[in-house]
Design a protein around this nucleic acid. Structure first.
Lengths: 161, 161
DNA sequence: ACAACGAATGATACTACGTCTCAGTTATGT
DNA sequence: ACATAACTGAGACGTAGTATCATTCGTTGT
């Protein structure tokens, strides 16, 4: 087991290791789903993997343009959409009503997000099964998915009196 | 115990009653926070209480304009912002990345939302305390809030074979 | 009841974010 | 290498939300 050296969230005991994939892993996912491997997509994926924190599309667009100013806006948005649909990216709520993307290959995963710096710590524990079953039974909804997330202030962003 | 007659989500056994406040209750909240009682605000609150499902700002704007076409767009957005800050409105995730508002006076409450028609069933059960304590301990985050929500298909929207 | 004050409003201009279109380019299978 | 279809970039376009500011209206004190 090796600790990746990509820039990513700090590690915390108890929280999951942030299993950040590399470019070729993500390209394999794209391939597997019938998408082509192109240079723009590679640039976008590399830039995504450079992000230490959850990022918005515009933020990513700016970062991508630093690497390649000629890369089109539409391509960035299209690629984000594809990666989101393939579960390579997960949405997290960063502030009331605003969301951002986080990298993470499949597997059930939620996040604890810092409202100060935006750092996202992933975790897999998810105590909703019982409640989901009960709601499903009492409401007759066919429950498809759920959103679970914590918002707080990370140690580094906490005021030290 | 009376069942309110305001248009609202259908009732389900096990799920909470949808305790929908009335206009004057919400105006009291505004007053208590130092805001004034104005006719436009009253119109907006009435329109909000008419909504059977979670609504987006634009949707509400259209509904408000049906009641009073002269009411300004900015006023609707400003009032939504205020009511959100006062916890009279809660945000729910309606689709990946898109959220909407639901009425509900304070009290810890989550929602089960139908991805077909948008109906939102509130519930109060919330099995996150233990997990929250553990995350708080292991990460040293000061956890402030959390988001928990289920997305599914309500009985009425399910295909009947 | 009235005046004075500041909050709230509505109109409009503006910005930001994202989508659409389309001609040209490039990856991929044979 | 070729044919084909997917992909791309440029830029026009649309939509949702914000900022500004002169005017109106609630509220408070007298």
């Amino acid at each position: 087991m090796s600790v990746s050296s990509t820039p990513s969230s700090p590690r915390y005991p108890g929280a999951d290791r942030d299993a950040r994939p590399d470019v070729s892993t993500i390209e394999d996912v794209l391939h597997g789903a019938g998408y082509r491997s192109t240079r723009p997509r590679r640039t976008i994926i590399e830039t995504i993997l450079d992000q230490a924190h959850p990022f918005t599309p515009e933020h990513l667009l700016a970062a991508v343009h630093r690497a390649d100013p000629s890369l089109g806006r539409a391509t960035v948005y299209r690629t984000l959409e594809i990666l989101g649909a393939l579960d390579v990216l997960t949405r997290v709520v960063v502030a009331e009503g605003h969301s951002a993307y986080v990298v993470g290959l499949p597997g059930h995963r939620h996040h604890l997000v810092c409202s100060g710096c935006g750092a996202a710590v992933p975790f897999t524990a998810c105590p909703v099964d019982h409640l989901m079953a009960e709601l499903s039974r009492t409401t007759n909804f066919a429950i498809q998915s759920h959103v679970l997330q914590f918002i707080g202030v990370c140690p580094a962003c906490q005021p030290t009196p």
